[in-house]
Design a protein around this nucleic acid. Structure first.
Lengths: 97, 97
DNA sequence: TCCACCTGTCAGAGAAAACCTACACGTGCA
DNA sequence: TGCACGTGTAGGTTTTCTCTGACAGGTGGA
């Protein structure tokens, strides 16, 4: 799993928070998601990659009903609690990166 | 209080996490803190300002024993839990900014 | 064949964050 | 008076992040 600061940086973005919220409605393929959140696919890929590396979402390939290949993304289960103690506890692993 | 994405961005930094951890030992004045975390005061001010705006720390002026004016910073109490639901709930306030 | 979908990536521009150096100024003490 | 220590900020550089536009390629259906 990524370091805490990296995970927090991945989620600390209004655009990526918007993506998370959109995925709460169920798994969605990239092009459809790009339309819903109103951004280019190229940009969305960048955001999706960061969210996936941080463990908030995960993607897989699948075939649609009419036989087209789709890249589906869905939410992972996650819960992070931030307190002074949890931050201090995470510091050692930060320096390993 | 700042928007969630702004608060998370403020804490999503190894340097600022380090500052938080250092302040767990008690309130500290700026120059001393700069020595401990090994950065210039100018840079530390930038980090402290972000942490304060996000509500993680707060500062106040005080006089040292030998009569010098010191700017002391100390930790605020905080606890943030991040889940898909908390992110979705925070979206409306994001757009107000 | 052409069109409408889809995936995936790259180069480069623009904006934002992080960082350093240097300055101005104040206080206590030898 | 000079030194050591403190606060606070302005300027400019470097680095990172964000974003656009364009490309190459695949599939199904009219």
């Amino acid at each position: 799993m990524a370091a805490l600061s990296q995970r927090l940086a991945a989620i600390a973005s209004p655009q990526r928070m918007r993506i998370i919220a959109e995925l709460m409605t169920g798994e969605t393929h990239v092009s459809e998601l790009a339309r819903r959140v109103g951004m280019s696919r190229a940009l969305l890929y960048m955001h999706l990659t960061k969210l996936q590396e941080a463990g908030f979402i995960h993607g897989h390939l699948a075939l649609s009903e009419d036989g087209k290949a789709l890249k589906l993304f869905e939410l992972s289960d996650f819960s992070i609690t931030i307190t002074p103690a949890s931050i201090a506890a995470a510091l050692p692993e930060e320096n390993e990166q």
